[in-house]
C-alpha cells in the first residue's frame, strides 16, 4: 500500500481532508467567483450612448461562467473524481511545498521593513535549512541573496529596497 492510500484511509481531520473531492471544492470556488462577477456586472450599465455598455460583456461572460462551473461540478462528482488524498502528495512532500509558500509570505512581510538582503536571506534560509546543515544553509542563503542583489540592483538597476 503506498503512502497516499495509507493517508487516505487515516481517521480524524486529516483523513477527512484527504477523502474530500478536490474537483468539487475547486468547482465550488470557481462557481462562487463567477456568481460574484455576475452580481457585480449588474452595477455596470448594460448599454451606453455608444451602444454596448461596460456591463454587457462581463454579464454574458460571468453568466456563461456559472453554467460552465455547474457542469464542471457535475463532472467532478460523477465522471472524474479527484480525491485530495490521491492527487496531493503525502505529509512530508506537502511540508516541502508549504515551506516554499511560507517563506514567500515571510519575504512579503519583511521586505519593506528590513530590505531585500535580510528578507531574501530569510526566504532562502527557510527553504535551505530543511535540506542542508545550519552553517551551509546560512552561507548559501546570504551568498545567493547578495549575488542576486548585485546582479539585479547593479547590473539591471532594479530598485530593490
Amino acid at each position: 500500500m503506498d503512502e497516499t492510500t495509507n493517508e487516505a484511509s487515516r481517521k480524524g481531520f486529516s483523513g477527512w481532508v484527504r477523502r474530500q473531492n478536490a474537483g468539487l471544492w475547486f468547482g465550488m470556488g470557481f462557481l462562487a467567483f463567477s456568481i460574484l462577477f455576475f452580481k457585480m456586472s449588474f452595477d455596470l450599465p448594460y448599454q451606453s450612448k455608444l451602444g454596448a455598455g461596460p456591463g454587457m460583456y462581463p454579464r454574458w461572460l460571468s453568466g456563461l461562467s456559472i453554467v460552465v462551473a455547474l457542469i464542471y461540478i457535475w463532472q467532478s462528482c460523477s465522471i472524474q473524481v479527484f480525491r485530495v488524498g490521491d492527487c496531493f502528495p503525502g505529509r512530508q512532500a506537502l511540508l516541502n511545498v508549504a515551506t516554499i509558500f511560507f517563506s514567500c509570505l515571510a519575504f512579503l512581510f519583511l521586505l519593506n521593513t528590513v530590505g531585500f538582503i535580510i528578507a531574501g536571506s530569510v526566504l532562502m534560509f527557510i527553504t535551505f535549512v530543511r535540506n542542508y546543515r545550519l552553517v551551509p544553509a546560512l552561507a548559501l542563503s546570504v551568498g545567493i541573496t547578495l549575488i542576486c542583489y548585485l546582479i539585479f540592483k547593479v547590473c539591471f538597476s532594479v530598485p530593490l529596497p
Binding site: 514567500c104 548559501l140 542576486c148 532594479v158
Partner: peptide, 21 residues
Amino acid sequence: AKLLYPIVLIISIIGAYTVSN
C-alpha cells in the same frame, strides 16, 4: 533540485517585484 528551486524562487520574486516595483 534542493539548491536549484530556491534560486529560481528568489529570481522569480525579483522578476515579479520588477513589474511595478
